[in-house]
Amino acid sequence: MAEWFEQIKAEFDLNFIQADRWKSMLTGLENTLLITLFAAIIGIIIGIIVAAVRTTYDNNSESMKYNGSISYYILKFFNAICKIYLTIIRGTPVVVQLLIIYFIIFATSTNDIMVATFAFGINSGAYVAEIFRGGIMSIDVGQFEAGRAMGFNYIQTMIYVIIPQAFKNVLPTLLNEFIALLKETSVAGYVGVLDLTRAGNAIRGVTFSAFMPLIAVALIYLAIVMLLTWLVGIVERRLRKNER
């Protein structure tokens, strides 16, 4: 028994304490969190823009055509671009997107973390856009008509009436999307970023001891995901309580 304990201790010592290896894990964790946070922000920005274009097109093409407005054709163009973006992003693996953005689009950049963040942000934007669009479409059309009938224009109706209701509906889904994003960033090592996964794997490569570093990586992800899931639960309960 004591022998077994000694062995564990030695393993722990080798993988984390010696050469301050825990520090590289910590750096990896920091990078993972940083990439996730900023990718989520980029995703939200892209998501808002794409969802706005798509829903505006869906809701107003009839009235814009009726008014013979030139903006109809502009909107139609951007709507087509958004659709292409959504199709490509949701139709290809995130690793492939990451590699393309790193080795082709930003081939000259030296800031690995920034490029990876962009790649994950652009990827997440497509999913966030569809979450937002779904949220807006889930609001009863009568709400929209009531707003317009009172004299609000399209954008005012969206801002005052539709979006506050839609946002409440999609907030849990949105947060879950970011939890998934956190896990997806574990492929950032493909382009040389030292994220949590790569840091753990690098330790394994040096110490030739797989169990400790990989299990540690898994446990850290698990702990963060459980924490975030718990927070989403609180948000969900809060929202349900307000919804009378």
């Binding site: 009863d140 009568g142 709400q143 008509e145 009531a146 009938a149 506050p164 209701q165 919804e243």
Partner: peptide
């Protein structure tokens, strides 16, 4: 023009939030 035309719907369409 719509500001001067009130409309009442079958399903009320009040803003629930």
């Amino acid at each position: 023009h719509r500001r001067k035309m009130g409309m009442v719907f079958q399903h009320f369409n009040l803003f629930p939030n």
